[in-house]
């Protein structure tokens, strides 16, 4: 077994308040390079909450998340942002593309933030990414001119912009028809297989979940499958 890319050590998340709400608790999970993991469970079981914690978008109230061997417990907000930028990519149920930017412009946003290469080179890379996802001829369009499935693929291209180690997707096919949903999962499977990118996706769809290499089942904020093998 190769070293874990993402590792959760006893993480829990409690929302403070007069009546504290426990989103997830006691999660031990270790996910390696190139794994394609489905997080499943009933509605309200804490799937999204777990994904935000693994993606360093939210902080656990107990335990710690370790990314590529680095403990993130002590990292400040700016360091977490830097890790999200260079190592992680998010895809949500809603595409969240910026409406004023073209398809190409949206894909280039993470690249421009990371910087390091001339604008022209970024443009070429973004275009290649879009070609790869079958969107080569859509680059100059605005998101509003695309179909739902195309938008979600643009969102995936944006998540892949900085060649992340981990893609985190929260019901990425929730708004899509069966065919588009299958396309998205095919992309994920190919990414994991060909580039060693780790893909963690939340899904309700049994058929799609069955195509992944591993399933993690949540009930009431707790893992009911062993998270560490």
């Amino acid at each position: 077994m190769t070293a874990a890319v993402v590792e959760a050590r006893g993480i829990g998340r409690v929302l403070p308040g007069p009546v504290p709400v426990t989103l997830v608790e006691g999660i031990d999970l270790s996910i390696g390079e190139g794994e394609f993991v489905a997080i499943t469970g009933p509605s309200g079981s804490g799937k999204s909450s777990l994904l935000y914690l693994l993606g360093l978008l939210d902080r656990p109230t107990s335990g710690t998340v370790i990314l590529e061997g680095r403990d993130t417990a002590e990292a400040d907000a700016a360091e977490l942002a830097a890790l999200r930028l260079s190592k992680l990519g998010f895809v949500f149920q809603f595409h969240f593309l910026l409406p004023e930017f073209t398809v190409l412009g949206n894909v280039m946003i993470p690249m421009r933030k990371l910087g390091g290469s001339p604008e022209a080179e970024l443009r070429t890379r973004a275009q290649a990414l879009l070609e790869d996802l079958g969107l080569g001829d859509q680059a100059a369009k605005l998101p509003s001119q695309l179909s739902g499935g195309q938008r979600q693929r643009v969102a995936i291209a944006r998540a892949l912009a900085n060649r992340p180690r981990v893609i985190l997707a929260d019901e990425p096919t929730g708004n899509l028809d069966t065919k588009s949903a299958q396309t998205v999962f095919d992309i994920f499977a190919r990414l994991a297989r060909e580039t060693g990118t780790t893909v963690i996706t939340v899904t309700h769809d049994e058929g799609l979940a069955a195509q992944t290499s591993r399933r993690v089942n949540l009930v009431d904020g707790r893992l009911v499958t062993p998270g560490v093998r």
Binding site: A81, R84, L88
Partner: peptide, 16 residues
């Protein structure tokens, strides 16, 4: 607010 949220998830900092 949605754009701001996604930009932050991408990795823009609060200062950005």
């Amino acid at each position: 607010s949605r754009d701001i949220a996604i930009l932050k998830s991408i990795g823009l900092t609060e200062a950005d």
